[in-house]
Design a protein around this nucleic acid. Structure first.
Lengths: 217, 217
DNA sequence: CAAGTTGCTTGACACCCGTCCAGAACGGAC
DNA sequence: GTCCGTTCTGGACGGGTGTCAAGCAACTTG
C-alpha cells in the first residue's frame, strides 16, 4: 500500500550485497543532477522548472521524482555536487607553488580562469546564496559551502604568508569576504561582456594578496 | 478603440496645466511601489507575485496594470526608489566627520546599522543583483546602482586618505568590492541569527579602511 | 520460460502566475 | 440633476508549475 520512497530505494541500493556493479541508483542521481546543473546555471534558480531540467536530459520529467523526493532535494544534490567540483578546482591551485610569487600568481590566474570558464556555474552559486537569505531551508548547505570556500582562501593566505616569512594582517573571514567580493564583481563585469575582466581580476588579486601580509623581522 | 496606455496616462499627467494638486498619478505609483518594495524584501524577487503585492497594499491586483505596463516596469520602479533611498542613507554617513578616526568610525557604524536595520532591503538588493547575472534586462539599472555605490565608497576612502594625510593603496573598484564583500558576509551572518554580526562588521570595516591608505612623507 | 522487481513514461490533478477586460464606483464640470 | 473621464474591482483566460499515480518496458531471479 505504501509507495516505495526515494530514501528506501537509496537504502536498498546501499545495502545490496552484490557490489560488483557500481551503485546504479547513485549514478543516475549524479547524472540527473548534472543535467540539472547545466539547466540551472543557464536559467538561474527561479526560472528553472523540473520539466525544463528533464527536457535537457534524456529522460522525462516524471523520473525526477523517482530519484529525488522533491525539487529542493534535487537542487541541494546539485549544489553538493557543485561544491565538490569547486573544491577540487581550488585544490588544484594550491600546493603547486614553492615561492610566494608563484603562489600569488598561480592563485590569481586560477581565480581568473575559473571565473571566465565557469562563469555560469559561479553565477548560479551567487544566485543560490542570495536565495538562502530568504529561504531558510537553503542556509545549512549554502553555509557549509561558504565555510569550505573560506577555509580554502585561508589556506592560500596563510601559506603565502608562510612562504614570504610574513604574517597575515586580516582574519580568515575578512580575507574570504575581500576575495569573494572581488571575484563577484569581476564575474559581473565578465558576464556583462567586458573581456578584460579576467586580467583585471588577476592584477587585483595579486595586489591585494601581496598587501595582506606583514613581513616579519 | 485603442486602450489608454500607462505611458499616455503618465503623459497627460505631466502635461496637465493645473498643477495645484500634486501629480496624483505619480503619487499612486510611488505608493504602490512602496507596498511592492515591502513584499519584495520579505519574499524575494522569485516568490513575489503581483497578487501578493496587491494584497499587502489597499488595492486589488488589477490596479497594478493601470499604473505599470507590466511586472518588470513595476520592479524597476521599485528598484529606482530603493536606489534613491539607499544613496540618501549613505549620504548621511559622509561629511559629518572632520578627523580620520571619526570618519572611519562613523562609516563603520553606519554600515553596521543599516545592515541590521534594513537587512531585508539589502538582501533584496543582492537578490536582484544576482538576477541581473541571468536576466539581461536588469543589468542597466542594477549596474547604475552598483556604480553609484562604488562612487559613494570611493568618496569615503579618498576623503579618509585626505584627512589622514595619506594616499589610497587600492583603486576604486577594488575598494568597493572589498567593502561590499564584507557587508554581504556580515548580512548573511546577521540574517542567519548571529547577533554579533553588526559589531563584527564595525570592527572589520574600521580595520580594513585603516589599512587601505599609505601615509605620505 | 514465467514471475516479480525496478526503471521510466505519460497524463492528470490542483494550484498559481501575468495579463487583460467589462463594468462598477467615484469625482468634478456643466 | 446629468454627463464624462478617471480610478478601481473582480473575474476570466491561457499557460506553466510541482506533485503524484497508473501503467508500460526492461531486466533480474527463480
Amino acid at each position: 500500500m505504501d509507495a516505495v520512497t526515494v530514501e528506501q530505494r537509496a537504502e536498498r541500493s546501499r545495502d545490496r550485497v552484490s557490489r560488483r556493479r557500481v551503485d546504479k541508483f547513485a549514478d543516475r542521481r549524479a547524472q540527473l543532477a548534472n543535467s540539472a546543473l547545466l539547466t540551472l546555471s543557464e536559467l538561474g534558480y527561479a526560472r528553472t522548472s523540473l520539466r525544463e531540467i528533464a527536457q535537457n536530459s534524456e529522460f522525462s520529467h516524471g523520473v525526477l521524482h523517482y530519484y529525488f523526493t522533491d525539487k529542493v532535494d534535487l537542487i541541494m544534490h546539485c549544489v553538493k555536487q557543485y561544491k565538490a567540483e569547486c573544491v577540487r578546482r581550488y585544490d588544484e591551485i594550491v600546493g603547486t607553488s614553492l615561492t610566494p610569487d608563484d603562489l600569488k600568481h598561480g592563485f590569481a590566474t586560477g581565480l581568473a580562469t575559473t571565473m571566465c570558464e565557469d562563469a555560469s556555474m559561479h553565477r548560479l552559486w551567487y544566485d543560490l546564496r542570495s536565495q538562502s537569505l530568504f529561504e531558510e531551508s537553503f542556509r545549512a548547505d549554502v553555509g557549509e559551502i561558504d565555510r569550505s570556500l573560506e577555509r580554502m582562501i585561508w589556506r592560500i593566505v596563510s601559506r603565502y604568508a608562510e612562504l614570504a616569512d610574513a604574517s597575515p594582517t586580516v582574519t580568515s573571514p575578512v580575507a574570504y569576504a575581500m576575495f569573494d567580493g572581488m571575484f563577484q564583481h569581476g564575474l559581473a563585469k565578465f558576464i556583462g561582456g567586458d573581456a578584460t575582466a579576467g586580467l583585471e581580476l588577476t592584477a587585483n588579486v595579486e595586489h591585494v594578496l601581496g598587501s595582506l601580509v606583514f613581513h616579519n623581522g
